[in-house]
């Protein structure tokens, strides 16, 4: 299936959460969202927004760097994964990551770079970049499906210059 790519601009944490909520609203079981970006770029904030759409209180969603995987009971099972501390796909396999990635829940993966080849083809990718002074650019790529188009339509206010 062909993929679509879009760049959005967020000027605050609130805007990042709003974009994330819109994405969360169109997610279905089996979806994997890979979140790439430097420290402090907004990945965990984004997860709070997605969680909110799935009925998980944002205050429950904190950085899972230490525990690597946090599971939340929302409208769908939500797996919040953080691979910052992992150094190989072998280590990822050892903690059962493939089962989570191919499971029945929604999976949000921070620091996915170490497991690129384990990511499913239908993975939604969000890449965060810093914009001066305080903004963020969010590059989102995904399979070209009606629900993703619906999400992009919702994000119109965040198109650069839009």
């Amino acid at each position: 299936m062909s993929r679509i790519s879009i760049d959005l601009r967020s000027d605050s944490e609130g805007e990042t959460i709003d974009i994330a909520r819109a994405l969360g609203a169109v997610l279905v079981p089996g979806d994997v969202v890979a979140l790439e970006g430097e420290l402090g770029a907004g990945k965990t904030v984004f997860c709070k927004g997605v969680g909110e759409s799935l009925g998980v209180s944002p205050e429950r969603i904190v950085s899972p760097t230490f525990t690597i995987v946090t599971e939340h009971e929302g409208a769908l099972p939500l797996y919040h994964v953080d691979l910052y501390r992992l150094s190989s796909e072998w280590e990822a396999a050892c903690i059962g990551l493939e089962e989570i990635l191919n499971g029945e829940g929604v999976c949000l993966v921070e620091w996915p770079e170490v497991i690129v080849s384990l990511l499913p083809k239908h993975c939604i990718k969000v890449r965060f970049l810093f914009l001066e002074p305080d903004g963020r650019s969010l590059n989102i790529t995904a399979e070209d499906t009606p629900r993703m188009r619906g999400f992009l339509f919702r994000c119109k206010p965040y198109l650069p210059g839009g």
Partner: peptide, 9 residues
């Protein structure tokens, strides 16, 4: 408790 990162993190 912390709203985002732990201190050790």
């Amino acid at each position: 408790g912390t709203r985002d990162d732990a201190a050790g993190e």
